[in-house]
Design a protein around this nucleic acid. Structure first.
Lengths: 172, 172
DNA sequence: GCGCTGATTGATACAATATATCATTTCGCG
DNA sequence: CGCGAAATGATATATTGTATCAATCAGCGC
């Protein structure tokens, strides 16, 4: 996982600091709404932040248990639900996992692009896709309030790497 | 979900006959590929056809058991997997249920519009959405091979009905 | 600081969804 | 018929997600 191997999945990400600020901002917003940001909730967010990618609820649970043996599935799901309501976490339906939101300020319908090789998830706010979806809904008489768009494939770096050698992968 | 609920969802649909022809066509295609269309698989398809909407795997199982008490979860999932591979059934990730494909000939990426009031699911092959998604993938260097687009909201008839009276609903 | 109140957690149990394994049966075919 | 691949049956188990309720905690007015 290091040395010559490309550190394509940074553990020390430059965005980390920015996301910590985001975290603080989220807390402020929550408190303003009378919601509390507690130890457990913070722990969930930190675990996702540290992972830098998607985790299933039970993977998350394992990590939380390292620090607090009393963590339970219910607790994890409650925290995840809390953050999803706040727009800070997304659920990836296609992999049944959860990931930190990269644009917690924008409450718009987003899209998720998932690399099946390395598990990388890219979140976008593409106007084109959103508009096309909205138009489609109108055509069919629907008033839409939830846009689930998950596009799966292979990312650029995995294709580049894949051409040469064979796998040493970790699909999410 | 229970026996006392009103049968508001038609069991005799005009499209049923056309879909039965589709079924035959599917069987032909499958056989040509060396896949078999068996009693159990046919039963799964017929149950979905009769329902006229989405069913979870276990709802499906209940129905199958009426005719064959030996049906098991594994069997149902195997049949569903088979038909999904053949493009005849879709899985709705957002509701963890399965539905008959309305355009089994087209292997294109489709979209599903889901009414949260009546559970109706409309399947489309919208060029606009598909193109926008494809373009987005290109921009980000992804080669996509799976497009999951599920748009949830309220359909026209439910909005019309909803204005007047109050609920008696059954979200899928 | 005290005590009220509602939010949150801990603990436990359980529901819902999905897959693994392996012996047996069925199907298509020569 | 009889072979081999495909499919099933039966069973067990893994994974994912909720319900319940008592105990605790955080904020708030006093």
């Amino acid at each position: 996982m290091n040395g010559t191997a490309p550190m394509y999945k940074a553990t020390q990400r430059p965005e980390a600091e920015a996301q910590l600020r985001t975290l603080e901002r989220l807390e402020t917003v929550c408190r303003a709404r009378g919601r509390r940001v507690t130890r457990q909730r913070r722990a969930v967010l930190r675990a996702l932040l540290a992972e830098g990618g998607a985790l299933t609820a039970y993977e998350l649970l394992e990590r939380l248990r390292v620090e607090d043996g009393r963590s339970t599935p219910a607790g994890v799901y409650r925290a995840l639900e809390f953050w999803m309501a706040a727009g800070a976490v997304h659920r990836l339906e296609s992999t049944r996992s959860f990931i930190l939101c990269e644009h917690p300020e924008a409450p718009h319908p987003g899209q998720l692009l998932i690399c099946r090789e390395c598990g990388q998830v890219v979140e976008t706010e593409d106007k084109g896709v959103a508009a096309a979806a909205h138009r489609l809904g109108e055509q069919l008489g629907f008033v839409l309030d939830r846009h689930l768009v998950e596009l799966t494939g292979v990312c650029g770096s995995c294709r580049a790497r894949g051409r040469a050698a064979e796998p040493g992968r970790r699909p999410a």
